[in-house]
């Protein structure tokens, strides 16, 4: 099966053996949720913490509060069990540290919102690679639930 690229604000799920990739995670957070035994996995590329302007309904993948329930629903539709879901997350960096904690550090807010909504949906967070000052590429292998994270100029790391 060909690798599937998940763009900003998108949600993709795969049953069986598949590779889901999202690139260019800056302040955005990549959320991987999977049912390992059933080999069902999905990935969302979350842009902001909370939905606004009524966009949560039309573009749920953009916001942490709508992306996580939408991803869970999509996973259950293709055979995952709610009680077996686990999550791994990556991203939420601040690429412009010199500009301080102000406007551009939405990364931290995104990470906090993703953790909160995983908890609200009773999904255990198994691993994370978040914050810092570097952009990330995140790959989910749906058969195993393995997530690989890579930043420019660094070796890939498995989480």
């Amino acid at each position: 099966m060909a690798d599937i690229f998940v763009n900003m604000g998108e949600i993709e799920v795969v049953r069986g053996e598949g590779v889901l990739i999202t690139v260019g995670l800056g302040s955005c957070v990549g959320v991987a949720i999977f049912d390992q035994e059933r080999s069902v996995g999905g990935l969302a590329h979350v842009f902001l913490a909370a939905s606004r302007n009524g966009l949560g309904a039309t573009q749920p993948g953009k916001f942490a509060d709508t992306a996580i329930p939408a991803l869970v629903d999509a996973l259950i539709r293709v055979g995952a069990r709610r009680s077996a879901l686990e999550a791994k997350i990556a991203g939420g960096a601040n690429l412009f540290p010199r500009l301080g904690e102000s406007t551009l550090n939405v990364g931290k807010q995104n990470v906090a919102a993703v953790r909160e909504h995983l908890q609200l949906n009773a999904i255990p967070l198994r691993a994370e690679d978040v914050e810092g000052n570097k952009g990330r590429k995140m790959t989910l292998y749906t058969k195993t639930g393995i997530v690989v994270v890579q930043s420019i100029g660094e070796a890939p790391r498995e989480i």
Binding site: S27, C28, F47, L95, F96, V106, I152
Partner: peptide
């Protein structure tokens, strides 16, 4: 502010910040 990184990471960070 300067960042040297993946285009998507820089660009989406700016858009999200804004």
């Amino acid at each position: 502010g300067l960042a040297i990184d993946m285009a998507g990471a820089i660009w989406s960070s700016i858009l999200a910040g804004a």
